[in-house]
Design a protein around this nucleic acid. Structure first.
Lengths: 149, 149
DNA sequence: GCATATCGTCTGCGTGCGCTTACGATTTGG
DNA sequence: CCAAATCGTAAGCGCACGCAGACGATATGC
């Protein structure tokens, strides 16, 4: 860990994370397109299972989207029978969101394609390193934003 | 590494990398702003030392920018005396780019602030894990895009 | 009962960005 | 010598997105 004349020992995290994220997204896009999904649509399908949400706004927040902007996405997913929206009897303002079996199948198929791409990518790494990387990425990505200061 | 009923053992890499990258960028922005730098300006200053470049287009490519969009950034950095552009005697179309001592100082100061933020973030991790994470991130971020398929 | 808040929805505004075109100047290669 | 390519530059177009405001319907709290 030596520093040579002001040269940092490693690039900034963001300087590495940005191109990686760009490349991952670029790789995902055609895979998702094969399944007729945009990245936001896929994000919605992911968000509907991993974390049960009872308002659209909460879903939007959990997937990092703008609640107003995902309306169109939700409309389309609903039209295609991939999600359902039903009124919440406990609060008539709210529409409960759920994924249909068909939605689950499509999401899982897309995810399998993405997983294959990822495994090819990670296969160049030693097992320890890839496990540590995933572990740390998971921890850091789940941190609340006030931890980044 | 067990899979329970179609539930993946981990989220997609992008699903983790995207929020992390967003958070890192959001954290960097005020640090850079304190030094009067936008993210692209900072990217230019970083790109001018780590990889000598002889055309503006090559610099833009190396930092993931659009060559037409960074003209304004370069203009501003030059106006502030942070970079220099000089004609290349070997090719009169080209303007050679270099960072000034002042530019280097500003970049290093900004980078020190970012490094402090990052160390605070990474300090919650075991040493092995953080080293492995940085090592892998470095490797993956440097891969050419055709490796993501 | 009523002021305030929240839900989903629609729309507007401003900004940034990818990509393209066009241009003048210069270089390259046949 | 000349066609094609490349450089930096300026600007246009379309799109995505963050954010905000407005609205009708509904819920909450005093």
């Amino acid at each position: 860990m030596s520093k040579l004349w002001g040269m940092p020992d490693r690039p900034d995290l963001a300087a590495m994370a940005i191109p990686l994220t760009r490349a991952l997204m670029a790789a995902e896009t055609p895979i998702l397109r094969e399944h007729g999904l945009s990245m936001w649509a896929y994000g919605v399908l992911l968000g509907l299972d991993e974390r049960p949400v009872r308002t659209q706004a909460a879903l939007a927040e959990s997937i990092g989207a703008d609640k107003t902007r995902i309306i169109r996405v939700l409309d389309d997913l609903q039209r295609r029978g991939l999600i359902e929206r039903s009124p919440d009897p406990a609060d008539r303002r709210v529409r409960l969101l759920s994924i249909t079996p068909e939605g689950r199948r499509l999401r899982d198929a897309a995810q399998a394609g993405i997983r294959r791409m990822e495994e090819r990518l990670l296969s160049r790494l030693p097992d320890d390193d890839r496990e540590a990387f995933v572990r740390v990425l998971r921890i850091l990505s789940a941190l609340p934003s006030q931890e980044f200061r």
